[in-house]
Amino acid sequence: MRDRSLAYVLLVPAFLIVLATTLYPLAYSLVTAFREWDLTKQRRPGEFVGVDNFVHAFSEPGFQNSIWITTIFVITSVILTLLIAMSLALLLRREGRLHTFTRIILILPFAMSPALIGVSYRFMFNPEFGVIAKGLGAVFPSLEGVPWLASPDLAMAILVLTDVWHWAPYMTFMCLGGLASVPRETEEAARIDGASSWRVFFGVVLPQMKGVLLVIAVLKTIFALKMFDQVVTLTGGGPGTSTETLAFFIFNVGFKWYDMGYASALAWILTAIMMLISIWYVRMLLSERKMATA
């Protein structure tokens, strides 16, 4: 029994740290979400305003815009990441020195800081001296002088590109893991049963990777929903508000406009969206597992 209480005592410091750094701010932001708090006027959260902050969100164009931007960003980035990761995994699946080497260097994009990725891409797409902008201009003269980051659609596309570039390699590893767990014999059986390579992949391999692909899709969705770093360092949310993701919008409300009550409410909306996705994901995963083991 003494061992047990000692164990709890030893857990206390860790628990206190988590309490101070996570649970307390979380609870505080929930309290703030229901109050008016203008940082330029008050040092502490002010008057209780009920659900006003939440109601305000759904009638405000800035929030609606950021939801729309985030939705587009999440969908394109998740789909592209999945497609590229799966394709790369299929290419890298075979054994060989080149394959191993490629697999090793593939980790590099993932090892880079997202904020730095944003900075590098801003340089590379600079119409005056950017290596990509200039390079594209040299190969396709019609692309010379395109104001890449000054066009709303192109800026969005580049933002998606940086995110896919960052994440696809890591997801490739997950796909490789998934592929490795598909028994070779099922593929061979399909080939003998009369399936074309196409059918082998779509009819036999892909269905067996459903679990892994689901995990990738949900993880990537959650990461994409939080998209912030590259927005700050690459586009600054612009041009205009064309790349203002929800996380970036919340940051602006809180730390540019100092409307902490509203920012807290928005943060909780984002949290709610992520929670819903997580719950749906766990449900799917559990039912998948039930199917596999039943």
Binding site: E185, T186, E188, I192, G194, A292
Partner: peptide, 20 residues
């Protein structure tokens, strides 16, 4: 000829059944 064009059938040691 590809396996699918050889008109054969095979039984594998680990069965090779399609789990899905």
């Amino acid at each position: 000829k590809a396996p699918k064009d050889r008109d054969i059938a095979m039984v594998f040691q680990n069965y090779g059944l399609y789990p899905h």
